[in-house]
Design a protein around this nucleic acid. Structure first.
Length: 308
DNA sequence: AAGGCGGGGCT
DNA sequence: AGCCCAGCCTT
């Protein structure tokens, strides 16, 4: 078993990187997950897929993506839509703020970039809902830029293979960037994420099937040594009331999705089983994020999906 | 640096 | 019954 190279050596050793790339790309050519959004090269379609995949399993995002792209095939089409319709198209995906942010991004693309998704990394990251990961993913997948997109999969794969303890974000990003091949940045990006999703899983990794096996510190670690598991943010205890707040927001949005366009829903009709204060807090929160509009009704305050 | 934000799949 | 998922934004 080869000793795992320290990341600094790997960044310097072009031959080692070449071997790693070849092994990974060969593996990907045989085993790639058939995700619908991998069939497109349209930057807008790729951007939409990345937003949908944020904290959402890629296979499930792919199903929604196909429907969404049929409705909103261009930035201009999403920019011109009503937010209510966009939220309806987002049903089932969760994190509904993403839908509003995506529409805002489409409007920025139309207003400031001539309706074309920008290829510049900084411009991408300025778009609403596009952070460090998504900007790099779009840059690499849609524009062939040589940037490493570090998501939870890549963090785990590279962390396990090339570090003995969780690296800081800058160190990890530098290694991810250095590993991107000259020729096929998009294929590489998909490939590393697939390793994390199907082989280098957080539990019960399939090291024997891994293209990085011969370089990997994790696979080589003797039994009993410390093994790095999840490399993202530590998960703290989630209070029960937090889950309830999210759940209530979701139920309210689903009620509003089922109403006709522009129809208002009275707070009193939402409350039913729910605590009056909890409903009010949820609606204020939704309004503050642009997910609903509020007005004072006759009996009680009223809410609807945004018509703009 | 920490907390909020969904819904579904997997173990 | 938890834990996790192609993260991002706000405070």
């Amino acid at each position: 078993m080869a000793v795992a190279p320290v990341p600094e050596a790997l960044v310097r050793d072009a031959r080692a990187r070449t071997r790693i790339r070849r092994r990974v790309l060969d593996w990907y050519a045989r085993t790639a997950r058939p995700l619908a959004f991998r069939e497109t090269s349209d930057p807008w379609a790729i951007l939409v897929s990345e937003v949908m995949a944020q904290q959402t399993q890629a296979a499930r995002a792919a199903e929604a993506w196909t429907r969404f792209m049929a409705a909103y095939p261009t930035p201009a089409s999403l920019a011109a839509a009503s937010s209510a319709d966009v939220l309806r198209a987002w049903r089932g995906l969760g994190y509904n703020r993403r839908a509003i942010a995506l529409q805002r991004a489409a409007r920025v693309i139309v207003d400031e970039h001539g309706g074309r998704v920008p290829s510049d990394l900084e411009a991408l990251q300025r778009l609403p809902g596009i952070g460090p990961y998504s900007a790099r993913a779009v840059a690499a997948l849609a524009f062939g830029r040589h940037v490493g997109a570090v998501d939870t999969n890549v963090r785990r794969v590279l962390g396990r293979a090339f570090f003995d303890e969780p690296p800081d974000a800058g160190t990890l990003q530098a290694l991810a960037d250095a590993l991107v091949p000259r020729r096929q940045p998009g294929l590489w990006t998909h490939a590393v994420m697939d390793i994390g999703a199907t082989v280098c899983r957080i539990r019960a990794p399939h090291c024997d099937a891994c293209p990085l096996r011969s370089w990997c510190a994790y696979a080589a670690a003797p039994a009993g040594s410390v093994r790095v598991g999840r490399l993202g943010r530590a998960t703290g205890n989630v209070p029960a009331f937090a889950a309830l707040s999210r759940w209530l927001r979701g139920r309210i949005l689903d009620r509003l999705r089922d109403l006709g366009d522009g129809a208002w829903l009275a707070f009193d009709d939402v409350i039913g089983l729910h605590d009056t204060t909890a409903v009010a807090v949820a609606l204020r929160g939704l309004a503050g994020e642009g997910l609903v509009e509020l007005r004072e009704g006759n009996r009680s305050p009223e809410a609807r999906l945004p018509t703009g």
